[in-house]
Design a protein around this nucleic acid. Structure first.
Lengths: 203, 203
DNA sequence: TCTGATTCCAGACATACTGTCCAGTATCAT
DNA sequence: ATGATACTGGACAGTATGTCTGGAATCAGA
């Protein structure tokens, strides 16, 4: 599948029909998800939207799931390639801003494929983020906190922020959001209020 | 449905048969989820496991989803009631430890109904946690960070930690995990390594 | 213990989606 | 131009859904 190499050097371009069909199916899926939610979509619907025969669908993808995987893959690759831009302020975590920026740029697509926490899609992205976090943390976790815990903590926090931001229509600039994320991640919530905790009363 | 009140004061106990049927269905669901995953389970399967006629199922619940909702509701109520135990150390956030402890106590149940991020279940719990966090934060967010952002950040971080802990078989004591959470939440990750950030090279 | 009300059940039904297969047609690369 | 490949619509069996029966079992209350 994928690309086929003829001899051994450059991969030969995919048959135009194949490319066309797959692109149409992916696009149809992306259009449909925000309208009806992934779970409710049927293969027939996707094909109708894409103007592709249902039997054709199954020659390319095993499943509705497989199509989503492929589409998601495309999408994540795009994020990876976008890493080049690199603003690189004086932040502690480099992965977050590019991600936020991508989420803004590919708004509807992102909302459809990634921000939909109600579907299984998120996991793939979560893994990607987890890796980025683990890489950037690289043994610099403070005190007695296990690396894994810090990684999960940050990954969850980041994805929650990202999801909220996308779902509420990008109420901040990417840089602002990233600043908040950086501050919360590195400095925490010192809880500026009068007392520091619930420890006021007893023990 | 639910409970029916005869005149106007105390609600009359539910018909034994109804109670029995619903309990059996809920229990069957909880048993089945870890075995095959919620999405793959069929109504017939649930009924078979519960020894309940399939037609009976539909007189109680509209849907597989409705059953899950109801089961989840039961479960969350249990968490709510457990709030009484209250260890209350000198931590900043009071909601976390009881939650961790409950997750440990109702291990399989919790894993089945809540920790399965791949299903839609999580959202309900997320809302609950969000509320708890927002309540405990109550305007004490530091600096220029919007409340909502702090809330999402913490909610995400907490749920990620909870999910990881449950899925990896409770490798820590609840109190330990909670300590780590508290520390990360209030003090952040000062990044103890040599340099503080990626700012070393340029600009 | 009797009785009317409620709930359970098995089974049948229409509907919908899935995944596979085919033979005919259109499009591709060369 | 031609052989290879991909697309098509339609048919197919299999499975799940949700609704509806009428009769049997179980209930609560007197």
């Amino acid at each position: 599948m994928h690309t086929k190499s003829r001899t051994n050097d450059r991969p030969v371009a995919i048959d135009r029909r194949v490319a066309r069909t797959r692109a149409l199916l992916k696009q149809a899926l992306v259009e449909l998800i925000p309208e009806r939610g992934f779970a409710a979509i049927t293969v027939e619907e996707i094909c109708a939207r894409a103007n592709v025969g249902r039997s054709t669908f199954y020659t390319h993808y095993e499943d509705k799931e497989a199509l989503r995987q492929a589409t998601m893959e495309d999408h994540l690759q795009k994020i990876g390639r976008a890493r080049g831009s690199q603003h690189e302020g004086d932040q502690a975590f480099a992965f977050s801003l590019p991600m936020f920026e991508h989420a803004l740029e590919f708004g509807p697509l992102h909302r459809a494929l990634i921000a939909d926490r109600r579907d299984a899609i998120h996991d793939q992205l979560r893994d990607k983020v987890r890796k980025a976090v683990r890489c950037e943390l690289a043994g610099r976790t403070p005190d007695g906190i296990p690396d894994q815990i810090a990684v999960e903590f940050l990954t969850g926090a980041f994805l929650a922020l990202l999801g909220w931001w996308v779902e509420s229509g990008y109420p901040l600039q990417p840089v602002e959001l990233d600043d908040h994320f950086q501050k919360l991640a590195t400095a925490g919530l010192p809880l500026t209020g009068s007392e520091q905790a619930t420890s006021q009363a007893h023990a």
